[in-house]
Structures are given as structure tokens and as C-alpha cells.
Design a protein around this nucleic acid. Structure first.
Lengths: 121, 121, 121, 121
DNA sequence: GTGGTCTAGACCACG
DNA sequence: GTGGTCTAGACCACA
């Protein structure tokens, strides 16, 4: 299930895109699985089909899914390219988060503690 | 000096806000220092004064600066509150970055390496 | 055998049409050969018979095959017309590909190399 | 100017995207140039602003332009990445065009003639 | 003024 | 039934 947060200011289509991306990365959805149809998901979430469409289109251009006209949208095999692109984006975010945490006066020890805690789960 | 990146997609007022915030956290700007006037900075950067105003207003509500009518905008004493708020925001960002990095398949070791490297500098 | 690529975004009926067209041009299928029946091919490929029907209809209007009611679909003699139409379409595609490659900054030498390499095989 | 062909079946937003892409590759539009505003171009071409928006969004994700909220859409410096991606796509198209031309019975000599003719202009 | 998002509803091609 | 495109028109944030 995709949980939407209307207050966050994050576009709905991005939340949907990221929701599926996460499920694919976590192998909750695996290669060949069918995503809900645009219209079905739209009515389920109570939003406009175009918004879902946009999310699916982005997932396709990023290589996470492929689409077959008249059949639906399916999870693609994890390609080298899309995985590497995703990971390098996440590494950049991590670097930036470290940098900004240090700038705000948080010390390394604290960051290490959090890193340990998060990796345990 | 504030360097603006028009291509990043980050709103200009946020870039200005973060630029000053960073300088204050790094003690480049200290309590009592005067920020450039809205008009002066606007003409220097070649942007709309409204944009500067918005950045200053945000800095004031976050407690980093205070405004004296007719005199200008000055760096505030680093209050416990504003610093803690800033740090907890940065910690949340860090946690989220760690979580998403792990989800994308990056291993703990890699994150530790980057953390070490960033803290050395 | 026809290999279908569901991920390519190319309509399935076009893939089937092009598959047979290629086999006919390469003389793998020659005049008088019978194509598989619509139903048989549909069940073999696991797709909708309408999709096969559309491919066969297109092949017929292009002059590559002819249909005998109740008997099936057969490869036609290579007529001057259909061959010329096919070749001029391919020449147009080739011209366009050359034009766009040049526009993107690829130099003539590179194109000549590829042309040599492809013609060797 | 962008010329639209409504009969071709090619989506309008792709035609617009490719029109600008071509102008950028040909240095008709160079780094820093401003594209027409979404609304202005839409009314000029007599189509819906959303259609223009889609084209601009694609150009941005491909790295050909960048967008500044409230100011407009500008041509980016030609990045290594976007140029290489574009060229490799064009090379693939060229290879495919060569292959299909040969399959249809066109001989190498004919292709060489066309290649010479196109490169002269 | 600019672009970005979202809705509502239409039409088309594919299967 | 599916997804893809397009239109019309609204609302918002940014400058």
C-alpha cells in the first residue's frame, strides 16, 4: 500500500513513484509483478488517473518498470544502470547529510551511534 | 559571499537562507554582525528584493537573526533553542539518508568509509 | 520462430509483422509457404488472436502474403511493387538516421566505420 | 520555429522536445538562451500549455535545459553526459537502419552513395 | 510574470 | 480492459 501525505508539500506523483521504487528495491515487488492499473489505483487512492500516470511514466524512464500497451505496467529486472544511478544518488544525499550535520555542530560520535542503530534493524 | 546555483532547482530564497545559516553556524558571521541590506544584496546578486526579504524573514523566524526597524538585520546570539532545532532537523535528515541508502543496497561499510572521509576534512 | 520483446514498447502486432517480413526478405520463408494459423500462433505465443490477425492483415496489405479463406495465409511471390516500397521506406529511414547522427555531432568517419562493420557480417 | 505535424502520429510534446533538442545540438540555441514561456509558446502554437510543459520537463530531465521557478526555462551548457547519451542513441538508430536496409536487399554501394550525399550538405 | 501540480474528462491505440 | 495523449481550467510557489 502507498500512504500519501498531502501536507508535506511533496508532489503526490513523487510519493507514489518513491513508494513503488522502495518496494522494488526491497524486493516486495519483484521482476514481472504487475503494478495496479492506473485507473484502479487512482480510484483506490481517490486521486486523478493522470497523477498515477505521471508516477508510472517516471518509473519507466528510470528503468524500474516497463509498460505493455493494453496489458499494464510490470516490474523490470533490476538493471545495472538503474541500480547504480539510484545508489549514487543515495550516496550523494548521504554525503550532503553528513556535511550539514557536522556544520550544525553535531559530532562524529553521534552520527556513528545513529548509523549503528539504523543498520541493526 | 553567497553563490547562487540557478540550475539546481532549489528556490533562490532557500539558497540565500542556507548560505547565511551556514556562515552563522561556522562562526563566519557572529552575534551582532550586520547582514547586507535587502536592497544592496538584491542589486549585488541581480535578483528581486522580495527574494532576499523572504530569506531574511525565514532566518528571523528560525531565530538566527533579528531585525531592527530602520537599522537592518543582525546575527542573533546562538540560542539554545535555534541550535537544537537545527541539529535535530539535521539528525532527522541523516537518519533518513542512512535508511534510504541501505534500502538501495548500499552496505554499512561503504557508509562508514564516507563518514570517515567527510569527518577528516 | 518469432521472439517477442514486451519491454521494448513496440506494439506486439508490429513485432510479429516485422518478424515475418524479415523472414520473407531473407528467403527463410518463400513463395507459397504457409504461415501458422492465427489461432495456433496466438496460443503458441500466449497472446490474443486479434493481435496476430492485425499483423497478418498488415502483411497482406503490404503485399507480402495473401490469404485464402478457409485455407490460411501464404507467402506471396516477391512482387516488384512490395519490394520497392519496402526498400524506399528503408532508404528514408537510413537518410533520416544519417541526418540525425550528424546533427548530434557524430562525424562521417564514425558512420563509415559502422557501415563497414555491419556490411561485413 | 517549431513546425508541428498532427498527422504523423508522433505525440506533439515529442515533436516540440525534438525541435528544441535539434536547435540546441545545432547551436541555434546556445547555453543561457531562454526558451519561450510555456504559456506564450502554447498560445502561439495553438495548443495546451500542459503539452509544452511536458516537452520542457523531458528536456530538463535529459539535461538539455534547466528551469528556474518564476523566471523560465534556459538552455544548459552541453554536458558530457547528455551529449554522449544522445550520440549513442543516434548510433543505435543508425546501426538498426543499416541492418534493415541490408535485409531489404539494398546494397552497400547504395548506402555509401547516400551517406556521401548527406555529409556533403 | 514564470513554471509545477492537480483535476476532470475526452479520445486513441493496443490486446 | 490496458496505458498514452491532449485539452481546459484551477491553484500554488517563486521572482
Amino acid at each position: 500500500m502507498i500512504l500519501l501525505n498531502y501536507k508535506s508539500g511533496v508532489p503526490i506523483w513523487e510519493q507514489i513513484r518513491d513508494g513503488f521504487k522502495r518496494q522494488i528495491l526491497a524486493d516486495v515487488l519483484t521482476a514481472g509483478d504487475k503494478l495496479p492499473s492506473v485507473r484502479a489505483l487512482a480510484s483506490e487512492l481517490g486521486i486523478n488517473p493522470n497523477t498515477i500516470q505521471r508516477a508510472y511514466t517516471e518509473l519507466e524512464t528510470a528503468g524500474f518498470v516497463y509498460t505493455v500497451a493494453g496489458r499494464g505496467c510490470f516490474v523490470a529486472e533490476k538493471s545495472e544502470g538503474s541500480l547504480i544511478a539510484e545508489q549514487s544518488a543515495r550516496l550523494e544525499d548521504f554525503k550532503k547529510a553528513v556535511k550539514e550535520a557536522l556544520e550544525s555542530g553535531i559530532d562524529k560520535k553521534r552520527l556513528l551511534e545513529i548509523l549503528e542503530k539504523e543498520t541493526e534493524e
